[in-house]
């Protein structure tokens, strides 16, 4: 499980020297259910790792442990060399460096789109309001929703809301971005607008952990595919290897169900 497994053309320039996110021997239970079993996973700077697997395999939980929205029972998680601290100021500081995009967008319902994107900058990064707004508008333009800045989340389509959520995370200038099934709650025609933004991010060299069912995205944007089933990492490979020649029976079975019909 080396750091950089594959480098794609555009990322040749990225200094992928050290490991950014390291999970070692992570275990977690939900009651009797052993959702994460001895998970070892290393994500290098600039790497895009796509986590796929059947429902209930623990992939979302895995994603959420990385910024400690889920606590773990045993094992060790390090981000940029530092172990995840206990709940408190230290953890808040670390979370600011880890962007997160949720399945259900979770934009702040009582704040405008612009306020959603400036809040973290002003309250966490202590940036002045004007600079934060300039940056927010630039980011909103970048994800294609600049015209919606003064609306409220409920007035936007799902795809627009998710792109705002990505902008909100990017405004913190995170070291790594976590995507927890970012397109699963979207109508089919809105999935692509979100995936395009994510593709662009990947090309720009952002370190990304993406839990998704979008195999097209995994093929085109991932450096590495991690296949999970029943709380374990069953297989790790480059997208080409994984989709054309999966090694484990579990992965073959999964792929046969989703790819052929």
């Amino acid at each position: 499980m080396s750091g950089v497994s594959v480098t794609k053309g555009a990322e040749d320039a990225v200094p992928a020297s050290t490991d950014l996110v390291v999970l070692s021997n992570v275990n977690k239970h939900f009651g009797a259910l052993h959702v994460l079993q001895d998970i070892d996973l290393t994500i290098a700077r600039g790497e895009v790792v796509v986590v796929i697997g059947p429902s209930g395999s623990g992939k979302s939980t895995l994603c959420r442990t990385i910024n400690r929205l889920e606590t773990i029972d045993s094992g060790d998680i390090r981000i940029d060399g530092k172990p995840l601290p206990q709940e408190g100021k230290e953890l808040a500081r670390l979370r600011a460096d880890v962007g997160m995009v949720f399945q259900s967008f979770n934009l702040f319902a009582h704040k405008t789109i612009l306020e959603n994107v400036t809040l973290g900058q002003v309250k966490v990064r202590k940036m002045d309001k004007k600079t934060a707004e300039e940056k927010a508008r630039a980011l909103l333009d970048r994800v294609g929703v600049g015209a919606q800045a003064d609306k409220y989340p409920a007035q936007l389509s799902g795809g627009q809301q998710q792109r705002v959520a990505i902008a909100r995370a990017l405004a913190m200038e995170p070291k790594v971005m976590l995507f927890d099934e970012p397109t699963s709650a979207l109508d089919p025609e809105m999935i692509n607008e979100v995936l395009e933004v994510m593709q662009q991010l990947a090309r720009d060299g952002m370190t990304m952990v993406v839990v998704t069912h979008e195999m097209g995205f995994a093929r085109s944007a991932a450096n590495r595919v991690v296949f999970m089933a029943d709380g374990k990492i069953v297989e790790e490979a480059t997208p080409d290897q994984f989709f054309s020649n999966p090694r484990s029976d579990r992965a073959k079975d999964f792929l046969s169900k989703i790819l052929h019909h």
């Binding site: 929205l69 808040a92 670390l94 979370r95 997160m100 979770n106 934009l107 913190m172």
Partner: peptide, 12 residues
């Protein structure tokens, strides 16, 4: 999810 999103931004 509102609280989770806020915590994920680094708010205390």
């Amino acid at each position: 999810g509102q609280a989770e999103a806020a915590r994920a931004l680094g708010l205390g």
